[in-house]
Design a binder for these strands. Structure first.
Lengths: 239, 239
DNA sequence: CGGTGACTTGACCTCTGTCAAGAGAAGTGG
DNA sequence: CCACTTCTCTTGACAGAGGTCAAGTCACCG
């Protein structure tokens, strides 16, 4: 289903019928990827870009000492490696964190679209800019927020992003990452990750069991996180 | 001088004479900005995007408690707020950290170029993607590196970026940021920022006096930093 | 010559990493 | 059906990195 990509783009601007057709024409068949499998390898030079249509994926880098830092989390509808179209050489890897479904687009098609479909191309650009905005928010969280606030912020962000593509249920969402994987997101040790999660649980702000996160007190959680969704650019306007 | 922008773009691909002309046609007159003055305000909706032609500038966000996190540093040749062209509302501010010179481009001209100059537009896109790559590297540094390594990494990055636009002299470069401003970059307290800098100085890796950083032992510094410049995409190839 | 801003240094305390071990759930093979 | 492994989560104890508070130095400037 490429509908999820269109739904994702529709959070930012109107997509014409002609553009939908152009999109459908360049998207390849859906494939499945196993958990922990690399979708794109660090150092490779992909000739296609990948849309995530189901599951959770992460960008990551490994340090010389062997520890991993996840630099971005991706939800269905995200174009996980549009970057490679311009950057050519992948400076980071992308891994499936759950069973994922993906669809690819040839870079040659993206190149053609940049001539024949400027508006669609601008929206692809926008998607990578939103990725950048999320990165900035993460930098702020890592540099100037407590770990508790950082985690709260991440949960708020995931909820809003998933809701934008219709993947929330009430105040909760399915979230299959382990605490160890979350530690690699926040730049924490596993032990402290656990204690930070328990802090939010103890205060009745969230519940997190069976791979499901439920936000019990949105207002309080957002206040702790100092969360403002502006950076996600979820507004439909001419772009 | 808009030459610095062209030189910056030439680090990634060949720029034709026609493209240079297109660029010159849309660039406004150069203006000067005082240190600590906002070049773009958080929350604003700019109608122009800004190229930094001289000086140092930073993107930043303020937290609810009032502390500041700098999320990116910009050197001459950087398009500091191309993002606003697509994101519309600025989710962060941009401030001059020294006396800066800037040149603006109307968003309407950028929109026209996206139809008439797809290659130039792709290069603009690339510039924002490199910004994203730098963000990711910073996230890794904040999450999984020691503060010493983080600082070493930043110095390596600044050196390579400045060299790419011809602003280094030997192994050194002019760098007018105070230690307090650097603390806002690394997400550190001022006191510890000072101690971290002194650590690198004590070991004879760098000298940093009179607003000038000199790298005394590149190999060692790069090793501590685990520095690999791939992410800056400084290679001339068809994009 | 006093004021201001940037840089230093010391003392102390808290947050977070590391090491170690145990509990619980889920899957595997005999 | 039961012993066994494996994975994830949890908890405790301790150490080290980095924050905060406070004070002093130094250069520059009006």
């Amino acid at each position: 289903m490429i509908d999820i990509l269109i739904r994702s783009l529709e959070n930012h601007d109107i997509i014409s019928e002609a553009e939908r057709a152009q999109l459908r024409a360049v998207l390849d068949k859906e494939k499945e990827v196993e958990p922990d499998e690399d979708i794109v390898k660090q150092g490779s030079r992909p000739l296609v870009s990948t849309v995530l249509t189901a599951g959770f994926a992460a960008r990551y880098k490994l340090t010389a000492e062997g520890s991993r830092q996840i630099t971005a989390l991706h939800v269905p509808g995200d174009f996980v490696d549009l970057h490679a179209f311009m950057l050519k050489t992948m400076d980071h890897g992308i891994v499936a964190l759950s069973t994922c479904r993906i669809v690819t687009v040839d870079h040659t098609d993206l190149l053609t679209l940049s001539h024949t479909a400027p508006h669609l191309t601008r929206l692809f650009w926008l998607k990578t800019l939103v990725d950048g905005a999320v990165h900035r928010e993460w930098i702020v969280a890592m540099g100037r927020r407590s770990k508790r606030a950082h985690l709260a912020h991440l949960i708020c962000e995931l909820f809003v992003r998933l809701r934008a593509v219709g993947l929330t249920e009430g105040n909760g969402f399915h979230f299959p990452l382990s605490q160890g994987e979350m530690a690699d997101v926040l730049g924490l040790s596993l032990v402290h990750m656990n204690r930070t999660i328990q802090g939010l649980r103890r205060d009745g702000l969230i519940s997190w069991t069976n791979q499901t996160i439920e936000i019990l007190k949105w207002d309080e959680l957002a206040a702790i996180a100092d969360f403002d969704e502006t950076y996600l650019s979820l507004s439909v306007e001419p772009r």
